[in-house]
Structures are given as C-alpha cells and as structure tokens.
Design a protein around this nucleic acid. Structure first.
Length: 557
RNA sequence: GCGCCCGUAGCUCAGGUGGAUAGAGCGUCGGACUUCGAAUCCGCAGGCCGCAGGUUCGAAUCCUGCCGGGCGUACCA
C-alpha cells in the first residue's frame, strides 16, 4: 500500500479510535475504514464513508460524526491540502502535490519490489491447476485454466505467501485402460488389421501418430504377444508420451509446476483405504445397499456420496478425498483448486471432504474457470473432444503466441465465458489488448534511449525533483500508480487475476493520452527530469504487472 | 423437478463484501504524424444495469418472486 493511502488510514484511525473506543459498550472497537477514489474531482483525491457507517453506532447524525472526526485529524507530514465534509456525510481529502510526489520516490526506490506486500505472512498455499487427464493433448480450455492458475500463484507469491504449484495426474482407472486399448487398435491397424476402430475410444489424430511412434520403437513384435501382455505396455507408453507432450506445451506456455502428483501413487500406497478408514473413525461413513457412503450432507451437500461401490471398488471421489487429505498432511495452510466450471457440482462434496477431515471451511478454495468459445474472424470453430476435433493449446501457442494468449485468457473474470478469436489474438493492431500494454512499455523504453543520447541521466529520485509535476494528468497518473499495490492485494484476496489486466489497461490508456498531449523531453531541464521520473515509474509498474501475468515487457516491438 | 452461475451501450465485457453524475474495448462517423514510437491520440453518438417488490440516509451491487440463458444433478472419471 502506498504512502498516501497508508498515511490517510493512520490519520483516520487516530481520529476515529477515541470516538468508538469510548462509546461501544460491547467492547468491539473493530471498524474497517474504507477509502475510495471518488470519480468526481470535486470530491477530492480520497473519500471515506466512515462517518455514515458510524452514525448509528454513535447515535448521532452523520454530519456531526464527520465534524468530530475531522476535528481529530492530525497531519504531521502536511500531505493534505484540505479536508471537506460533503453530501450526507462523506469526508473528502485533497492531497497536496508534494504528497503525490512521494509516491514516485517510493516506486523508484522499490523498483521490482514495488507492489509486493506481506499479506500471507509466509503461510503455505498450494495451487493445483490444469490436472488434465493424460489421454490426449491439452486444448485451448486448458490454456485458460493454466494461465489462471499460474498467474494466481504469481499473485499470491507477490503477496507474501509461500506458493507451490501442482498438477494432479489422473493416471489410474478405466480411462487409462481405454487409452491403452486405443493405442493397441491403432497399432494393429498400422499392421494391416482391418478391424474398425472402436467407438468409445480416443478418436483423435494424435493416437495414430502415437501408434506410429510405438511401432518405430517396438517394431512388429508386440502384435504376436498375448493381449494381456501388450495392453499394459500400450497403456504405459501412451500415458508417458502424452504426459511428456503436456509438460512441453505447458513449459512453452510459460507454466511450470513444483510437483506432478500421480493418482496411481495413492492407490499404490493404500492411501484411499486409509482415508476412508479415517473418515469412518470420525463417523462420516455408513453402509447402505452394499456400498459405503460418505455423509457429505452433514456439510451442506444435497445428497450423500458413494466412496466404495457395492463391487468393492472405490470411486474417483474417494481418490480425490485421499488426494486432498494428502495435501493437508503436507502442511499447507490453504489449498486452492482450479477447476473447469463444468465440475461445479463437485464443489459441495469436496468442501465437505475437507471439513470432515478436520479443516476449516476456508482452507480449501475452489476457483471455477468457464469455457472458452473459440472463434476465427467472428465465426465459431467447431470443437468436440469426443470426436477428437479440437484446437490444441500447442496450435494456439504456435499461431498467436504465448503473450497474446495468456493476456487474453485473463481479460475476463474466470467464472464468465470467454470469446477467444484467433484472428484478433494474432492481429498486431489496436484490436489486441496485449499490444496496447506492451506498446506503452516499448514506447517508454525507447524514450529513455533518446533521453540518454541527449544528455546524462537525471539525478537520483528525491522529492524536490518532482516538484514541477503539477498538471492534472500527471497527478492522475501518479494516483493510479499508487493504486497498484491495492489492486494486487485485492486480486490476491478475491483470487481474481483479471484485475491486474484491467488495471494495466487503464494505466496505459492514461499514459498514451498523456504522451500525446505533453512532451516529456523539452527545453525546461527541471521539467524534463521530473517527467522522466514519472515515465520511469510508469515503466516500473507496467513491467511489474506484466511480469505477474507472465507476459513479456518488450523494449522494442 | 432440485442446485449453482449469469442477464449492464449495437457486440464482448468490467464495476458486485452498498456510496455521490454507471465505465472500457470493439463497431459507426469525423479529426490529429516535418518535433520523444500513429501498434497511439482527440471528438460525436449510444443505457428504465432483465422485470416487479423489499431492506436503508443511499441499491447495478444485498433479500424475495417472476421471466430469459448456461451448467450440473452416476455405485463415470
């Protein structure tokens, strides 16, 4: 949080504390002061509604309360030009230009650290995302999920959490067998077997390529082995190869994971049975119709869920319970799952699971990512996972690039659907929001190059240097720069990465406008130096923001 | 049927733990490059924030009902 905001909050707290301290009989003096940025300039640089919120509590009318608060304000550093009470009881603060100039000194002192803060206090958070089944390549929807998870992890790390990124590999169960059989059939087809490819198997082109690779490695020999022997080989081969492709795609998309967690490993170490036994000891398991049920309704789910089927085989949900128990056993304070929105029906039962295992409700948070509507020049691109017709993440990266794809994925809140137009995403022009932001960075970078050619670097960032910055546009820019830490904190709090994208867009829009209206390099030396300082601060914040998004901040483009 | 999410400018969407006159991009139309990058900027037009009630000093925001759309509702994974 930047100086002005912090100081105002401190000043206000000091003025308000005596009022509520003496009158609240319950002894609860907790009161959160809100500071808004008013839209109307007449309403000052910051405004608070504290007087109106306190009016009832103090049994006085809001204007009176505002009077008392204002009377108690002390401003030792003289950052305020004046304070006004307006409307029903708003208190409006007008900051002196010199107060704003302090923001620039702070940004230029902190540089890459500007915006970071310690909300997390070093607590450990795990972000689990993508976790796509290794039965086919990642498609564009996974791209959105991976960008969301990756950036969320960046944001939390910047806010003082110790973050781990994890990918859960669903490498157990029927689908892996189906995968193995799919490869086997394609392989036999390559060797001239006329049997048609079974319907409910993986249809995609990639299976044929995989079969070719398999044949190149293993020759024709496996054809003559017993099926029971070949299938496991096929399953392992296909699973490994596909997972390798997924890792490569994600790496090229700028996403890395700390842990790749295998579902099979849970089965191997009997973790599922142990988890069910644990829940049984806690009294959340009962038997009915030959199956074992978990009482998720105790925690608000609409019906109880089977964890062990009548045939003795545990369900996928049981594995997921074991997996989440494992997460908490590893000592994470918070666990965040990023899921496709089509899984939203599972949220209550998973949340029930976490609570039954003894965790507080907020320890597991689930972020839902809505689907991506893929378009090309305005017309929808048909996709069907089942038929194996889909646009892969790889194709998106190759066609539009990582920067554009990541940025566009993060232009909407994750729980609303997103139109992704391939032609717009790869356009170099003004349709494309990435270049708008990157262009500002390149523009600033080249500005400094010109400045260097013309003369020596300006002096270090002291407060006096910025005194010439008095234009309303300049103050407005500084104000926005000062909000960056607040935006970052809010996006961490709400788990909403798109706030960063919006902020950058707004900041850069104001900069472009300013740039067209004012000359930064002029005859007046002092003014030039001041504006270069502002420009440098802008470059720092744009750079920091883009870095959070995993998008490059180019010097030239 | 039940549950969750969503209805904001022509289109795509921000704003949603209540705040003062609701924003952006795209699209339409008209303007600005001999001077730091025109991938930019400036201007015009565009709205009963789905509808109806309620809560309050104050509602796009919270509550209820209705209308319209999406998704989910397995002893699948």
């Amino acid at each position: 949080m930047t100086l002005i905001r912090t100081r105002l909050l401190a000043i206000l707290t000091e003025a308000i504390q005596p009022l509520i301290g003496s009158t609240d009989e319950a002894g609860t003096t907790a009161f959160t002061i809100e500071l808004d940025l008013p839209k109307q300039p007449e309403h000052g640089d910051y405004a608070t509604n504290a007087a109106m919120l306190l009016a009832r509590r103090l049994r006085q009318n809001p204007r009176q309360v505002a009077d008392r608060i204002v009377a108690g304000l002390h401003d030792p550093d003289q950052i305020l030009a004046r304070v006004e009470i307006a409307g029903p009881g708003f208190i409006n603060f007008f900051v002196k230009p010199s107060g704003w100039h302090r923001v620039l000194t702070e940004i230029l002192a902190e540089r890459a650290d500007y915006g970071r803060r310690n909300l997390g206090g070093g607590r450990r958070v795990q972000v689990e995302f993508v976790s796509a089944n290794p039965t086919g390549p990642l498609h564009i929807g996974h791209g959105r999920g991976s960008a969301t998870g990756d950036v969320l992890a960046n944001i939390l790390a910047a806010c003082g959490y110790q973050v781990e990124r994890e990918y859960y590999i669903n490498d157990a169960g029927n689908q892996m067998e189906t995968l193995g059989r799919s490869l086997y059939h394609r392989y036999l087809q390559l060797l001239g077997d006329p049997t048609p490819f079974p319907e409910n198997h993986y249809q995609g082109e990639y299976m044929i390529e995989l079969a070719q690779a398999f044949r190149a490695e293993h020759g024709d020999g496996p054809k003559h082995l017993p099926v029971a022997e070949v299938l496991p080989l096929c399953t392992r081969y296909a699973g490994d190869k596909i997972l390798e492709g997924i890792r490569n795609d994600l790496a090229d998309f700028g996403v890395r994971f700390d842990v790749w967690f295998s579902e099979q490993s849970l089965h191997d170490r009997n973790a599922i049975a142990e988890t069910i036994a644990d829940l049984e000891r806690r009294g959340f398991i009962y038997t009915a119709d030959g199956a074992k049920w978990f009482k998720t309704t105790d925690f608000g789910d609409e019906k109880d869920r089977v964890v062990v089927r009548a045939n003795g085989v545990s369900t996928y949900f049981a594995a997921d319970l074991a997996y989440h128990k494992n997460k908490f056993d590893r000592g994470f304070d918070r666990v965040i799952d990023i899921w496709g929105a089509d899984h939203h029906g599972y949220v209550p039962r998973m949340s029930a699971g976490a609570q039954a295992l003894g965790r507080a409700q907020g320890d597991l948070q689930i972020v839902l990512v809505q689907l991506v509507n893929l378009l090309r020049a305005g017309t929808p691109v048909a996709m069907s996972t089942r038929a194996g017709e889909f646009v892969t993440l790889r194709e998106v990266i190759d066609e539009v690039g990582t920067d554009a794809a990541r940025f566009i994925f993060l232009t909407r809140r994750s729980d609303s659907q997103l139109d992704f137009d391939l032609e717009v995403a790869k356009a170099r022009g003004n349709d494309n929001p990435v270049y708008y932001v990157q262009y500002a960075h390149a523009r600033l970078s080249s500005l400094f190059e010109v400045a260097r050619e013309r003369g020596p670097a300006p002096p270090a960032a002291d407060l006096d240097r910025f005194a010439p910055l008095t234009a309303p546009e300049e103050i407005q820019l500084i104000k926005l720069l000062g909000e960056y830490p607040e935006v970052l904190a809010n996006s961490a709090l709400h788990l909403e990465p798109h706030r960063i994208t919006y902020y950058l867009h707004q900041l850069v829009a104001e900069f472009h406008s300013y740039y067209n209206r004012y000359r930064i390099l002029g005859e007046d030396e002092a003014l030039t130096e001041a504006r270069l300082g502002l420009a440098e601060a802008l470059r720092v914040v744009i750079h920091n923001g883009l870095q959070l998004l995993g998008v490059t901040a180019p010097e030239k483009m």
